[in-house]
Design a protein around this nucleic acid. Structure first.
Length: 877
RNA sequence: GGGAGCUUAGCUCAGCUGGUUCAGAGCAUCUGCCUUACAAGCAGAGGGUCACUGGUUCGAACCCAGUAGUUCCCACCA
């Protein structure tokens, strides 16, 4: 059979993925083995795969595949998040296209549309993960709004309410005027923007005097209920007890004094709008100011504003400034930079707004979550994030958990017609409970709270709820898989999600939810910008897979992604990944093409090569184990890459490759061939977590196998004791080969021209079994030992052995001398530096004994080498 | 405003508790090869005052201080 020259991912990827699924190779059920568990950070159900997911899920897949091969019961739980605000916004937009307004629909009808949408499009992202090769146990796919998970959310809410950790109250919250809901502090992103600072003068009541305030938000003037200055500010002390007149509305408001004011800012006088600024609100509470809510939920001026009613606050900002100017009340306008909060989900400017919301008290809940990260029970990788985590957890605010949306878990709070509230699961229960306070109540009088819970209030339970830990707290699954092992996620959601999962884990299982948190970097473009849909700078991962193959893209992503460092993504690394797939493919093609001689005895050089590569592989497996244990994924990949490309392909295969005679290939002896197959299969296994498809394809082509005998469930190669001498001996042979190649290059000798090599070597240093290898890879006709110098030959020195390569052309004696002289100087310098060290009493006194011994050895080695060079030089003269 | 991190070759990064003349890897570059596994390849080579300044030390890319640049997190300055 003719094997194609290049590896074609298109004909292998779908084939193997469905094969794996067909044979349930990703499936996990509890058994006697040690579990290894990862729960996926559930992507938004509205999402499509982006580069961040690619990175994230590639890492998870590498970890899970490796664990599976190491004999653990690997379980990767996939799923999606209902993402209430994002999904609701999407459905609202979709309905709008059809000419339907959300307000025209009942809650039930809207939810019907939303579920329809979810059922139709909600699975896209999971399908895309299959393209990447993600080895999730798809039978365990969960959705944060499916029945069991929603039940868990509601139970937890009720439980926390009963524990007095949840309360309801009117607070200043972050209002998203586009999403029409409150959002939590964490969902507000502050950006620095260019603004204008308007200096506006207010008339002092009953006096021919004005006070000038400075504001960036003139549109809130209509809601002003005071002017505030610092008590120590002498400019304003005479205004004690006076009142100011608010423009347009002509409202008389008190001038109050509070040391909250920064006298240096603006004019030192602040307009106070308790309804639309958190600081002003606090001042209002303190000084018992009236609260006038002049901006409605949509960010438009409300009736209470009296003027500009129904117009957008930003339109009004300009208009009001112009109108004030006409009134002669604008003193000046300055350009300033300030920070404005934007909604994480809708990117609308956040409006501080007073409203009735539900909150979760975080102070005591967060304690164990902080402790157990600080004491290393839960590890953050890289650990620099511990600081950030600590800071957040120590300053954590109460969590606003209610959202004015329909898509999500509706808050299980029930109200009667007399202002009574109960929290419980069903309306019927609520009726019973309310009857206590309100005996005449009928079920029709009971209304459920309209709000739903923050999405994160469901996803913080994810590691428990995916295993039915709430429905069945003593169940087999939860007890077996929980705590999970590794969580792989982006640092952006460390507080949103990771911290809260830890809190929930301790609160509801009394145990951590996971042991290691691997925080990936953020994928950026070449200019360092974050990849995002709005910037359009993110390549489509699926297109990349089409172009380079899933294995190529996986390698490309991982090559440049140390934990926690941002990843400047460049498509060229995917190209490197694709080339690597091809390299492996061609190694297979070479081996597969050999003719095997079952009777031939294994030549000594082949035995040496096999022995060497076994040692090398063993050595690198130990390196890999160490790197994996430290979650150094890109280094583990690079180590694998070099092992395969350099050691296996460039050296080992070249060493044992049968020679060609008269246009036909000689057969290879069966011993070497069999050993090579075994080694190659080990190589494939080591590669498999990174490159599942190409390795599976070759796995089946290199050896005929049962269809159930897949590399996915093969066993990770074991290691033995190290044999460093084999490696160092071969290193010498390799060095000789490289030097000969170097000489060819320098002297312009064709690689085809056979050379002869003479070595003036000590008997005890000779290891003859490598000589044939040297001859083969150096393309030598002869390799002979001599006892004295060879004339008219290029010479070089390795490990105190002189080598000579006789050349047809005459040796340029002067050039040789010069080269040797340089070499001599280098070694003299080196010797000197060692001698200085050894002459230093303090060094002798302080250095570790093994270091000292090493230095002494260096000294004798250098001396010997110098002698050898000097001898060569005198011979030349 | 507070805090954390980063700065090593053209690019992306290693360099563990200071100790080989210590400055490394991959990619890119350059040179020579269409050598029957692979030009998506082979062989070879060149590239860096380890951001800057000072200190500690027998010895500093590594420890300390300061400076500059840069990234991120937190915070209610109108």
């Amino acid at each position: 059979m003719e094997i194609p020259k290049t590896y074609d991912p298109k004909i292998t990827e779908d084939k193997w993925y469905s094969h794996w699924l067909k044979h349930n190779m990703f499936k996990s059920v509890p058994d006697e083995r040690e579990p290894y568990t990862i729960v996926i950070p559930p992507p938004n159900v509205t999402g499509v795969l982006h580069m961040g997911h690619m990175l994230n899920n590639t890492i998870q897949d590498v970890l899970i595949r490796k664990a599976r091969m190491q004999g653990k019961n690997a379980c990767w739980v996939p799923g999606t998040d209902h993402a209430s605000i994002a999904t609701e916004a999407k459905v609202v937009a979709l309905l709008k296209e059809k000419g339907i307004r959300k307000t025209d629909l009942s809650r039930e009808d809207f939810l019907k549309h939303a579920w329809e949408w979810k059922n139709k499009y909600g699975g896209i992202i999971l399908k895309q993960l299959e393209k990447l090769g993600a080895s999730c146990d798809w039978d365990r796919t969960r959705f944060t709004m499916e029945q069991d998970l929603s039940d868990a959310v509601i139970d937890v809410f009720i439980d926390l309410y009963n524990k007095d950790k949840i309360y309801r109250g009117v607070r200043m919250v972050n209002w998203d005027p586009q999403g029409l809901t409150a959002v939590s502090d964490e969902e507000v992103i502050y950006k620095e923007v260019n603004s204008k600072l308007y200096y506006v003068k207010y008339k002092i009541e009953g006096a021919d005097e004005w006070i000038t305030i400075a504001t960036t938000r003139p549109e809130t003037i209509l809601g002003d209920t005071a002017v505030c200055v610092h008590p120590a500010d002498e400019r304003y002390t005479h205004l004690k007890g006076k009142r100011a007149i608010i423009p347009f509305v002509n409202r008389s408001v008190p001038i109050i004094f509070d040391d909250y004011i920064t006298m240096e800012f603006g004019t030192g006088a602040l307009k106070v709008t308790p309804a639309h600024d958190i600081n002003d609100y606090n001042l209002g509470v303190k000084h018992q100011l009236e609260v006038i809510d002049t901006i409605d939920a949509n960010g438009k001026m409300s009736a209470a504003a009296q003027f500009y009613v129904g117009e957008d606050r930003f339109v009004i900002r300009k208009k009001i400034a112009k109108d004030l100017e006409e009134l002669g009340q604008i003193v000046k306008i300055e350009d300033i930079k300030n920070k404005v909060g934007y909604s994480e989900r809708t990117d609308a400017v956040i409006e501080p707004k007073l409203s009735m919301q539900w909150f979760l008290k975080m102070d005591t809940l967060s304690k164990p979550a902080l402790e157990n990260v600080l004491n290393g029970e839960i590890k953050l990788i890289p650990d620099k994030f511990v600081n950030t985590y600590k800071h957040w957890m120590e300053n954590v605010h109460d969590w606003c958990i209610s959202r004015q949306l329909w898509w999500g878990q509706q808050i299980p709070a029930w109200y009667d017609n007399k202002g009574n509230t109960v929290v419980c699961k069903t309306k019927e229960e609520a009726l019973e409970k309310l009857k206590v306070k309100n005996p005449s109540i009928k079920i029709e009088d009971i209304k459920q709270d309209e709000d739903v819970l923050d999405t994160w209030f469901s996803s913080w339970l994810w590691p428990i709820s995916v295993f039915d830990g709430f429905k069945n707290p003593d169940g087999k699954d939860i007890n077996y898989y929980y705590p999970t092992n590794d969580l792989v996620t982006a640092p952006e959601i460390l507080f949103f999600w990771v911290a809260r999962m830890i809190i929930a884990g301790y609160e509801y299982r009394g145990k951590k939810p996971f042991t290691n948190v691997y925080l990936t970097g953020i994928v950026r473009d070449k200019q360092g910008r974050k990849m995002s849909k709005s910037l359009g700078n993110s390549p489509d991962p699926i297109e990349l897979i089409e172009k380079y193959g899933a294995d190529g893209v996986r390698v490309g992503m991982l090559l440049c992604s140390p934990a926690g460092n941002d990843l400047p993504f460049d498509e060229s690394t995917c190209e490197q990944g694709r080339n690597f797939s091809n390299k492996i493919w061609n190694a297979f093609r070479l081996i597969k093409g050999w003719e095997v001689d079952n009777t031939a005895k294994q030549p000594e050089n082949n035995a040496a090569a096999v022995q060497w590569f076994e040692a090398k592989l063993n050595e690198q497996l130990l390196v890999l184990a160490d790197l994996y244990s430290k979650y150094r994924m890109s280094e583990a990949l690079m180590t694998t890459y070099k092992l395969v490309w350099d050691d296996f392909c460039a050296w080992y295969l070249e060493m044992i490759k049968p020679e060609y005679l008269d246009g036909t290939s000689l057969p290879i002896d069966a011993t070497t061939y069999d050993a090579t197959i075994i080694l190659f299969e080990k190589i494939l296994k080591v590669l498999h977590p990174f490159m599942p498809f190409v390795t599976e394809e070759i796995w089946h082509l290199i050896t005929p196998r049962d269809e159930k005998d897949c590399i996915v469930i093969s066993t990770w190669p074991s290691t033995t004791a190290e044999s460093p001498s084999v490696i160092t001996q071969m290193n010498v042979a390799m060095e000789i080969i490289t030097t000969i190649r170097n000489i060819r290059k320098q002297k312009n000798i064709s690689p085809k021209e056979k050379l002869t090599l003479f070595a003036k070597i000590n008997e005890d240093l000779r290891v003859d079994k490598y000589n044939t290898i040297v001859c083969k890879l150096g393309n030598l006709a002869n390799y002979e030992y001599v006892t004295k110098k060879v004339d008219n030959a290029f010479s070089f020195l390795l490990k105190q052995t002189e080598f000579y390569v006789p050349l047809s052309e005459n040796i340029d004696v002067e050039a040789e001398k010069e080269r040797l002289q340089k070499d001599l100087e280098y070694n003299l310098g080196f010797l000197k530096s060692v001698q200085i060290k050894l002459a230093n009493e303090k060094f002798i006194a302080n250095a570790k004994p093994e270091l000292l011994a090493n230095e002494r050895k260096k000294q004798t080695d250098a001396e010997a080498k110098i002698k050898a060079i000097e001898a060569q030089l005198t011979e030349l003269n």
